[in-house]
C-alpha cells in the first residue's frame, strides 16, 4: 500500500555526478524520503539525459518532468527578472550574495517564476565566473582587447564582454573545447569547478580571477506538481531543499578550492587582477537599465542589502 501511495518526483539536470550540485540534490532526495517517512522520493536524472537546461524547463511547463536545476542565466529567458544576476560586479562579496539570495529579494525572484508555471525552491551556489585564456594572461581589461571570448547565449553576458573591450562570441559549451584548441576563440569564462571539470585547462593556461559575475543555480519545480502537493508535502520539500542549499554551500567551497589546486598543479597560472579596473569599465551597463523599471529597482535594492 505504501508503495502505491509513494510520490515519486522526477528531477533532471545537466551536470555530472561528481558535481557538488548533484551531490546536494542527492542529499535533498535522501532527506525528503526520511522526512516524509518514505511517502515521497526523488528520482534524479543527471548528465542531460532528459535534455538541456532550457529543454528541461519546457518539460516542466509541459508537465512530463517535475523538477530541474538550471542556471539563473537560462531561467532569465523564462522569468525575465532573473536577468539581474547576469550583471557584472552586482555583489560586493560572498556574504552579500548569500544575504540577497536568502532574503526577501531572493524569495521574490523564486516566487516570480510561478507566473510562468515554474516554482523556484532555492538557490545553489555557483561561485563566480572569471576569464581563462590561451595565449596571454588577463591582468587588466586592456588585455582583453581583440580577444574572442566565448560567452553564454545571453545579451547581458555579451554586453559585459563588449564593455570590457573583448569580442563576445557565442559558441555552444559542447563545441568549446575544440574551438579553444583550434583557436576559433581565444578564451572563455566560467567558475573554477567548471573550468576544471570541462578540462579546458588542458588548453587554456591562464586563469584570471576577476570574478565578474555570480550567477546562481536555481532549483525549480513545475507548478503542475507543486500545486498538486498538500501543504504538509510542500513544507517537507521546502525544508529538504533549504537544508541541501546550506549543505551545498560547504560542498561548493570545497570543490572550488580543489579545482583551483588541481588546475595549478596542471600548470595553469592563476592570476588575481585588480578587480576595480574591470568594475569601472562596466559601470555604464547599470545605466542601460534605467528604462527597465523592475530591473533597475531590483539593482538598487540589491545594492542596499547589507
Amino acid at each position: 500500500n505504501t508503495l502505491q501511495d509513494k510520490k515519486v518526483i522526477k528531477l533532471a539536470h545537466g551536470l555530472d555526478m561528481s558535481h557538488p550540485v548533484h551531490k546536494a540534490m542527492v542529499f535533498m532526495a535522501q532527506d525528503l524520503e526520511k522526512r516524509s517517512n518514505g511517502t515521497m522520493a526523488v528520482e534524479i536524472y543527471p548528465n542531460q539525459q532528459l535534455g538541456t537546461e532550457r529543454q528541461a524547463l519546457e518539460l516542466l511547463q509541459i508537465g512530463s518532468l517535475d523538477m530541474t536545476k538550471v542556471s539563473a542565466a537560462v531561467m532569465e529567458n523564462f522569468s525575465p527578472n532573473m536577468k539581474v544576476f547576469g550583471l557584472p560586479f552586482l555583489f560586493r562579496d560572498r556574504a552579500h550574495i548569500f544575504n540577497v539570495l536568502d532574503g526577501d529579494i531572493g524569495k521574490e525572484l523564486l516566487d516570480g517564476g510561478q507566473k510562468y508555471w515554474l516554482k523556484g525552491l532555492g538557490y545553489y551556489d555557483s561561485g563566480s565566473r572569471s576569464f581563462y585564456t590561451k595565449e596571454k594572461p588577463v591582468e587588466s581589461p586592456e588585455d582583453l582587447k581583440g580577444l574572442k571570448i566565448r560567452v553564454m547565449e545571453s545579451i547581458t553576458a555579451m554586453n559585459m564582454v563588449n564593455s570590457l573591450g573583448g569580442s563576445p562570441t557565442p559558441i555552444s559549451w559542447g563545441e568549446l573545447y575544440t574551438s579553444l584548441q583550434q583557436g576559433v576563440v581565444d578564451g572563455a569564462e566560467n567558475n573554477p569547478p567548471s573550468f576544471y571539470l570541462s578540462r579546458h585547462y588542458e588548453v587554456c593556461k591562464f586563469y584570471s580571477l576577476d570574478e565578474h559575475t555570480s550567477v546562481p543555480d536555481v532549483l525549480i519545480m513545475g507548478t503542475h506538481l507543486w500545486n498538486d502537493l498538500n501543504e504538509q508535502q510542500q513544507k517537507w520539500v521546502q525544508t529538504s531543499v533549504d537544508l541541501s542549499v546550506a549543505h551545498q554551500r560547504e560542498l561548493w567551497a570545497k570543490a572550488e578550492q580543489e579545482a583551483l589546486d588541481a588546475v595549478k598543479k596542471a600548470g595553469v597560472q592563476v592570476i588575481n587582477p585588480d578587480k576595480s579596473k574591470f568594475q569601472k569599465k562596466v559601470a555604464n551597463m547599470y545605466e542601460g537599465y534605467k528604462d527597465e523599471n523592475e530591473i533597475y529597482n531590483l539593482i538598487n535594492r540589491i545594492q542596499k542589502v547589507e
Partner: peptide, 19 residues
C-alpha cells in the same frame, strides 16, 4: 580525433583527460 563524442565521454566520466 578531434571527436565530440570523446569530449562527451570525458564530461560524463567526471574528467578523463581529453588530450
Amino acid at each position: 580525433p578531434p571527436s565530440n563524442v570523446l569530449i562527451v565521454y570525458s564530461l560524463a566520466s567526471g574528467g578523463v583527460s581529453i588530450a
